[in-house]
Simulated scan of single mutants.
Amino acid sequence: MSKRSSRPKRGPEPALTAASPCPCGLPAAYGECCGRFHSGEEYAPTAELLMRSRYSAFVAQDEAYLLRTWHPATRPQQLELDPGMQWTGLEILATTGGSSFHSLGTVTFRARYRHHGKRGALHEHSTFERQHGVWVYVEGTFVE
Rank of each mutant, 00 (worst) to 15 (best):
S2F: 15
K3M: 00
K3P: 02
S5Y: 09
S6V: 06
R7G: 03
P8I: 04
P8R: 07
K9Q: 14
K9D: 10
P12R: 10
P12H: 09
P14A: 12
A15C: 03
A19H: 01
S20G: 02
P21G: 01
P21W: 04
C24Y: 02
P27D: 06
A29D: 06
G31A: 05
C33M: 01
C33L: 05
C34D: 03
C34E: 01
G35F: 01
R36H: 04
F37K: 00
E41R: 10
E42T: 14
A44V: 10
A44I: 14
A44R: 09
P45D: 12
A47S: 14
E48C: 11
E48V: 14
L50K: 14
M51K: 11
R52K: 05
S53A: 15
Y55D: 00
A57R: 08
A60N: 10
A60D: 05
Q61N: 12
Q61Y: 08
Q61M: 13
Q61D: 07
Y65V: 07
L66C: 04
R68S: 12
H71A: 07
R75M: 08
R75I: 13
P76C: 07
Q77Y: 08
Q78T: 12
D82W: 09
G84Q: 08
M85W: 10
Q86K: 07
W87G: 00
W87D: 07
W87A: 04
E91Q: 15
L93R: 11
T95F: 04
G97T: 08
G98F: 00
F101I: 06
F101S: 15
H102F: 10
H102T: 11
S103N: 15
L104V: 10
L104A: 14
G105L: 07
T106M: 05
T106K: 06
T106N: 07
T106C: 06
F109V: 03
R112A: 13
R112M: 05
R112L: 06
R114N: 09
R114Q: 13
H116A: 12
H116S: 08
R119T: 13
G120T: 11
G120E: 06
L122Q: 12
L122K: 06
H125P: 03
T127E: 09
F128L: 12
F128P: 01
E129N: 11
E129L: 15
Q131R: 15
G133E: 12
V134I: 15
E139W: 03
T141N: 08
T141E: 15
F142P: 13
V143T: 09
V143P: 05
E144F: 00
